[in-house]
Amino acid sequence: MIYKYYIYLLFGSILFSVSNRVNAQEVNAVVFNDSIRNGNVQVFDVRTAGEYNTGHLSNALQADYTKKEEFMERVKYLDKDKTVYIYCLSGGRSAKAASWMRGNGFKKVIELEGGINAWKQAGEPVEGTADVKQMEVDAFRADIGKGEVLVDVGAEWCPPCRKMAPVLEAYLSEHKTVRLLKVDGGRDQDVMQSIKVTSLPTFILYKDGREVWRKQGVYEQL
């Protein structure tokens, strides 16, 4: 009887695993590249920001799957009706993220087989590998020292940051005296630590070096 129980348990686990991946679709690096180059799609990198900055696919958005709060916040700004091409380092994290996305309303999620490791081995191109120097904290302090300065802590690969782009543009067009200073959320870690910013996007308005207001996340207006 106990033996039969374990057989049923094992069989159930196998069925669950198969059903959980029934809608999964993986393609190799060449097909993946052709698809994202020729289609109106979203490219989603679920590695860490540090990994992203060692090289990423063109126009890729980023959210760290291992940071659940960050992932859940950023994934909601993707279009569920538009195909998502997803990848990580070797395929493990992207498989889990894709499975969650399919179970939560995303119509089509395509995984990169073997992750960016396989992509590089196939000789496909990556961007963002240049060793760009961080913004220095002293330089940042000097830059916000005079007048009204709006600091935008964000990144091109951050979905909610992109969502805020037209809002930011509208704010600056209405406030001609305000100067914009961008802080890269994936690179300028020293500056972020000095102004206590831990999530993207964050907007801080300074007047003569003094912080007067701060907003974090997505808003209809600043």
Rank of each mutant, 00 (worst) to 15 (best):
K82H: 03
D188Q: 03
G128L: 08
V153I: 09
A165H: 10
S199D: 05
Q216N: 12
K182T: 05
A60H: 01
E51M: 08
V46F: 03
V31R: 00
E73M: 10
E70Q: 12
V27A: 07
E70R: 03
W157L: 08
P160Q: 06
E211C: 11
K4T: 05
L222K: 03
E113N: 12
E111G: 07
E51C: 04
S19H: 13
V178W: 07
F32H: 11
R93T: 12
C161T: 06
F106M: 12
Q193S: 11
V149K: 08
A139E: 11
G186W: 15
I2P: 01
E148L: 15
F44I: 03
G185L: 02
V22L: 14
K107H: 08
M192I: 08
L150K: 07
S19I: 12
G91C: 05
E211M: 03
K68P: 01
E69P: 02
A29W: 14
I204G: 11
I14F: 05
I2R: 11
K82A: 06
Y8V: 07
Q62A: 10
A118K: 14
Q193C: 04
T177A: 10
K80T: 09
V31K: 04
G103M: 04
N23I: 04
F44H: 08
L61N: 13
K4F: 07
E174I: 00
I36V: 15
R187F: 03
R214T: 07
A95D: 12
F11P: 00
G147H: 07
